[in-house]
C-alpha cells in the first residue's frame, strides 16, 4: 500500500481545513493499459439444466444468476452474507449465493427459487404453505425464505416452533412476516 501513501497529499492546516480525505485508502497507481480480470470456464447445473460459462474469476454465483442468466428470483439484499435474500441450494445445501464465486460451482447442482417447484410446475409444499399462511408481504425476502425453508425441512430442523425460528434466522424479513413464516414451515413439514 505504499503506492497509496505516496499519492496522499496533505494540505497545510489553513483556515478551517483540518485534513484531507482519500478514497479508497488502498487505491494503487493506475497501471498502464487496461486492467483485466482472469477468465475461467465453469460447467455446472442450474435448475436441472446444464450451464457452461466463460466468466471473470471474481463473478459471484448471485450476479451470474441475476445479471447473465436472467434468473432474477434470487435477490440481493446485502451482498455480504447477512440477509439470506440470495439463498440457493448447492448440491442440496442452502448457501448464500452472494458469498460463492461461480468458479467454485464447477460440477455442482444449483437450485434457485425458479427451480424449486415440482417438475410439472405445481408448487412445492413450502411455496403453497407460504401463500396459505400469508408468510410474506413485499415478497423480496420470499425466494430466499422459500429455498431456505425447503432445506430446513430436509435437514430435519422443522420439528418445533423454537427449532424453526432458530434455523430460519439466516433469512431476514423486514416486513416481519416471521410468525407466519414459522407457521408455514411447520405446515409444509407436516405435509412433507
Amino acid at each position: 500500500m505504499t503506492d497509496s501513501l505516496s499519492r496522499r497529499e496533505f494540505l497545510g492546516a489553513s483556515g478551517a481545513a483540518v485534513g484531507v480525505a482519500l478514497t479508497p485508502a488502498g487505491a494503487t497507481a493506475a497501471p498502464k493499459g487496461r486492467t483485466a480480470e482472469r477468465m475461467v470456464d465453469v460447467t455446472c447445473n442450474v435448475n436441472g439444466r446444464p450451464v457452461s460459462a466463460h466468466v471473470e474469476a471474481r463473478t459471484t454465483l448471485l450476479d451470474h444468476l441475476r445479471e447473465r442468466m436472467d434468473l432474477t428470483g434470487t435477490k440481493k439484499g446485502c451482498n455480504e452474507g447477512a440477509c439470506g435474500a440470495c439463498t440457493v441450494l448447492v448440491d442440496g445445501k442452502r448457501m448464500n449465493a452472494c458469498l460463492i464465486l461461480l468458479a467454485q460451482c464447477e460440477g455442482r447442482a444449483i437450485t434457485t427459487v425458479e427451480g424449486i417447484a415440482q417438475p410439472d410446475g405445481s408448487l412445492h409444499p413450502v411455496q403453497q404453505a407460504f401463500i396459505d399462511h400469508d408468510a410474506f408481504q413485499c415478497g423480496f425476502c420470499t425466494p430466499g425464505q422459500v429455498v431456505s425453508a425447503a432445506a430446513c425441512i430436509a435437514e430435519g430442523h422443522a420439528t418445533s416452533e423454537a427449532s424453526v425460528r432458530e434455523w430460519m434466522s439466516g433469512n431476514l424479513c423486514r416486513c416481519s412476516a416471521y410468525p407466519q413464516i414459522t407457521a408455514a414451515v411447520l405446515a409444509a413439514a407436516r405435509r412433507a
Binding site: L71, V113, A117, L123, I131
Partner: peptide, 13 residues
C-alpha cells in the same frame, strides 16, 4: 390469500 402470492413464491415477481 394474496393474489400476487404465486408470483412471489416462484420468483416471477
Amino acid at each position: 390469500t394474496r393474489l400476487e402470492g404465486h408470483a412471489k413464491v416462484t420468483g416471477k415477481a
